[in-house]
Structures are given as structure tokens and as C-alpha cells.
Design a protein around this nucleic acid. Structure first.
Lengths: 232, 232
DNA sequence: CAAATCCTTAAGATTATCTTAAGGCAATAT
DNA sequence: ATATTGCCTTAAGATAATCTTAAGGATTTG
């Protein structure tokens, strides 16, 4: 169920952030701010998956990926800044199993990691473990892989943000989740102000699509002064 | 269970206030009114968590945070005045694990401190200690994380203020808590006048929701001339 | 019995949330 | 390239929940 994950990014804040979200999912994280140390780690530790920034000060992600591939089989996910030209990226991410552009949403990163591990164990072990990419309960189905949502056999077409919010609420159901927490989980940003009512607006849209109401909620309940909640 | 906490704020009254509440929770407090002395302390003492005001006369909180991060791993919580622009804040609190805007409620501060320590020990020790965010006794359950309250399996929907008052009473049960003390704990405001009967009104609402009465109290007992009390 | 403290109630002030709509941005199609 | 579409964010007004205040009544104390 758990796995050793290598994280390499010279931007410490980003590496740290990734570490937090992965540890939150109970993965063991091996974090480095440069390529050299990371390569050493690969030899000594039993790594199951690597997340590499393509732009590193010493060795670039592409080289690391190549060197990993010479001896190891585990999946590699590349991180690329959005501004970097697509040509460069296609070159540098060659050989990677997936790549994610910065800034990314924590949920997305975690989902991709799980998907890769799922794919990998599927092809490499007799007893494939199943990571949770589905949430199902009382008529509601959420599929993280396809971002699809079904409510009582009817498909809801949710936007990415709406889906993420509902996902977080559902995976914490029975517990109240504050706007701030939702914001952090969905946007990956620590800084939330009360004047920011964007979470609220998306909740409103969600309720609309679920034929829910704020006054007599069937699904998303408002807990005054605390946050939102879906009953268990 | 206990921990060494560094507190830095140039507003002495605020630093003193924080000290009081933390000591009340049995933490050891190292308090400073400027950044220089605080940094020195970090080197000599075995600090477990820091609370830093972002706006300090000599070194700002951001710099302190950076300097701490170079050598230490403990969590850092930033304090920011509400008026300070969000841009400034995002810059200055970069690298912090959490931030709290002033004015804050003491309970909130304590809760955040506990949360950080919980998170930290979770990632850094084999035997994760559990800090108390739950109060349970004789049919009553209070959950600080979700602000939920259950009495004899029935859910009570308390307002934030009501919850806070009940929390303080419960965590001091067996002892009489004065209106003034309640006011300070819940509102974080030092100045309480006797003509202020707002605590009393909330007690009344609490009793109503708990099906309690002032004459024959099952839970919240009035101690004449002293305050309120919940039996042990 | 008088004085002090506490209880209850309700109205007004405050604060949090809801709703709606408009503008900006980004992805997609022409 | 440009146009179109859909999504996200922001802002402002409306609504609802909560908080505070104040006043009168009740209870306890001395």
C-alpha cells in the first residue's frame, strides 16, 4: 500500500510542498534539492517512483531519467514549468512515464502518482494492489482517473475545480472541512483570505448541479463558522 | 507531551498573552520582543516550534524563518496583522507552516500549535503522540477539529462562541471558571467589565441546547459570586 | 428586607454566508 | 491567427445566523 518516492526539485519550497502531500498519503519520501544526491539515493534505496524537475542546477531531469532507466524499472514523473518551451519539454521529458506542469494542484499530483504506481504494480506483481481512485457511496460515484461524477446513475458534468472540491469533501465525509482547508487542498495555495469567496461560489455551482440547496441540503451541508460537510 | 515554544513579537502585550495561554497548556515558552535575541535562543535551546510576528523592528519574521530553516526542522507559525496586504503576507510568510491573523482567539492559536506539533511528531517519530483535540466524558464529546459536539449520542449544533465556552468549561472541569476568565479565554480580550453579560447569555443558550436549567443544572452549575463549573 | 448577583428575553448590530452577474483568462475550434 | 466557448474569479447586494446590549424580573446573600 505504501511506497518509496524520490522527489527532486531545486526549488525547496516546491519539493517541501510535494513532500507534505505525499507523506499525507502515507508514502515514504526521499527528497533532494539537486540531481547528484538524488542519483546516489537511487542506488541505495529501494525507490518505487520518482518525481523530477526537468530544470535542475547540476544535472537536468532528462539525464537523471536516463541514468535511472539504465538500471531501474520504476516509473518517472517529470515536473516542468509552464513557461518552458514545448520543444524543450518534449525533449527533456522523453522517457518519462508522465509529466506535470507547474503550478500543479496537489490533488492532481497525488492522483498521477497513484495512477503510475497502479500501472506499475499491475504489470510487475502477481497481486496487484489497488489504490483508491474511486469514491462511491449512496448514489454518488467519483472517479479520479477520468474526473467523472455520477449521481444516482445520472452523469454530472463537473468542472475540474468543482470535481476537486467534491472529491475533498467526499474523502473527508463525516467531517467538517473549512473553506481555508478546501482552498489549500484544491488550489495548493496556503494563503486564503476571508474576502476570497471563490470556494463558496464553486460550492454553489456544485449544489446547483446536484440539485441541492443551501437551506435544506441533501449533500453539502454548511456548518456555520466552521465549513462544509458531507454526512457519512 | 510538552514542548519548547519560541514566541517573538515586538508588541509585548501580545507576546505576554501568548505566553500565558501556552504555559496554561504546559508548554515551555521562550519569549522575545525582537528578532536578534530570538535567533540566539534558537541556537542554544532545543526549540520544538516557533511563533513569529512578521513585522518586527529589527529583523522581520521572514528572515528569521529563513535563518531557522537553514539549520532546523521544527514548524514555524507566522502572525500577521489583518490589515497587512496579502501580497506582503505571502512574501513574508513564505516557508512558514501556518499563519494566523491578528486579532486571534487564544483557543485558535493553541489549536494550531497543537496541530503543527501533531503533524511534526507524526513525520518525525516512530511513536506518534496524540495531542488532545477531543474532550470526552460521561456522554459528552467535544471535537476541536470540527467544532462538533455530541451529548448522549445526540448532536448539538453549537455556534462557534458557544462551542468555545463549553470547551473551556470542559477542559477545566471540576474547577470554577469566572466570567472574566471565560471572556479572556474565548474572546482573547483582556478587558472585561461586569456590565458585560454576554458570557451569561451564551451560557443561557448552551443550557437551552443541552436541556439544562439554571435552577437544577445537570451540566453547567452556577457558583454564586464566583463563576461557572462542570462537575468532574 | 435590602443589596448584589444572576436569569431571561428581545431588539438591534454585526458578521458569515448565499446569490447573481460581469469581466478576464485559457482552452479549443475555425 | 482569430474567434468562440467554457471556466474561474471577483465584486456587490441580499439573506440569514449569530453576537451584543440593555432592561426587567428572579434569586441568593447578608
Amino acid at each position: 500500500m505504501t511506497a518509496n518516492i524520490l522527489v527532486v526539485d531545486d526549488e525547496q519550497s516546491i519539493a517541501d510542498l510535494i513532500e507534505v502531500y505525499l507523506k499525507n498519503e502515507n508514502y515514504d519520501v526521499f527528497k533532494f534539492y539537486n540531481g547528484r544526491d538524488a542519483l546516489q539515493c537511487v542506488e541505495n534505496q529501494n525507490i518505487d517512483l520518482a518525481i523530477l524537475d526537468v530544470m535542475l542546477p547540476d544535472v537536468d531531469g532528462f539525464s537523471i531519467c536516463q541514468q535511472i532507466r539504465e538500471k531501474h524499472k520504476f516509473p518517472v514523473i517529470m515536473l516542468t514549468a509552464k513557461e518552458e518551451e514545448i520543444d524543450k519539454i518534449t525533449g527533456l521529458t522523453l522517457g518519462a512515464d508522465d509529466y506535470i506542469t507547474k503550478p500543479f494542484r496537489p490533488l492532481e499530483l497525488v492522483a498521477r502518482v497513484k495512477a503510475q504506481l497502479r500501472r506499475f504494480t499491475k504489470y510487475n506483481s502477481a497481486e496487484p494492489k489497488q489504490e483508491e481512485h474511486l469514491i462511491t457511496f449512496s448514489g454518488l460515484v467519483l472517479d479520479m482517473d477520468t474526473h467523472e461524477c455520477t449521481l444516482n446513475e445520472k452523469k454530472l458534468s463537473l468542472t475540474p475545480t468543482e470535481f476537486s472540491i467534491l472529491w475533498v469533501l467526499c474523502s473527508n465525509r463525516g467531517r467538517v472541512v473549512s473553506s481555508e482547508e478546501l482552498f489549500q487542498e484544491v488550489w495548493g495555495d496556503k494563503y486564503f483570505t476571508n474576502s476570497n469567496n471563490t470556494v463558496m461560489v464553486h460550492i454553489r455551482h456544485l449544489r446547483e448541479k446536484m440539485h441541492d440547496s443551501a437551506e435544506h441540503p441533501k449533500y453539502i451541508k454548511t456548518v456555520w463558522g466552521v465549513g462544509y460537510k458531507i454526512e457519512k
